[in-house]
Amino acid sequence: MDQHYVYILYSETIDKYYVGQTEDTEKRLSFHNDPEKNNIWTQRGIPWVLKISIAFPSRTEAIKAERFIKSQKSRKFIREIILNGWKK
């Protein structure tokens, strides 16, 4: 199985966090920061900064973690992950 990552980006421009999952964090960050290729809402937050990338052994586990983080709807929860890592 390929390793997958949950990543958290931050945009100072719009003061927002973005949580996603990917196989290649560097490539995904590059996409979010490319105004030519990025046609999703994150385009308005350029530049995005990678705050943390958390490795998972499968895409399924990464998706579950991504959904869990998003379901918390909490900046405080996201900041806690950034400061102390993933603990679930």
Rank of each mutant, 00 (worst) to 15 (best):
L29Q: 03
L9Q: 08
S71F: 05
Q43R: 14
G85C: 09
K27R: 15
G45A: 09
E36R: 06
E36L: 12
V19G: 06
S11P: 04
T42G: 00
N33Q: 05
I63D: 03
K73Y: 12
A65N: 00
R59W: 00
A62H: 05
S58L: 06
E36P: 08
I78E: 11
A62N: 04
A65K: 08
Y17W: 02
K88W: 09
Q3K: 15
F77I: 07
I14Q: 06
Y17S: 02
L9F: 14
R28T: 10
L9C: 13
K73H: 14
K37A: 13
K27F: 01
N39E: 10
E23N: 10
F77K: 14
Y18S: 12
T25G: 02
S11D: 09
G45C: 06
F31H: 12
K37N: 09
E26H: 13
Q43T: 09
T13A: 08
I46E: 02
R67P: 01
N39Y: 13
F68R: 13
H4S: 12
V6G: 05
F31D: 00
K88D: 02
S11Y: 09
H4R: 15
V49T: 13
I46G: 04
F31S: 03
R59D: 08
R79G: 02
A62T: 09
I81A: 07
N38A: 08
K16L: 11
L9E: 15
Y7P: 06
K37Y: 08
L83M: 07
R59T: 04
S58R: 06
S74C: 12
R67E: 11
E36Q: 15
D34A: 00
L29R: 05
S53T: 07
N38E: 05
G20E: 08
Y17C: 05
A55Q: 14
I14S: 12
W48N: 03
N33V: 01
F77C: 09
K51S: 05
I8N: 05
I8M: 08
T25F: 11
E66V: 00
P57I: 03
W86S: 02
F31R: 06
K73R: 15
M1K: 13
Y10H: 15
I69D: 10
E12P: 03
S71W: 06
E26I: 14
K73Q: 14
E26V: 14
F56Y: 13
Y5A: 04
A65S: 08
K16G: 02
V49W: 00
W48A: 04
Y18L: 06
N84M: 03
H32T: 14
M1H: 13
K37E: 12
E66T: 05
K87P: 06
A65V: 03
Y10G: 09
K88T: 01
K70D: 01
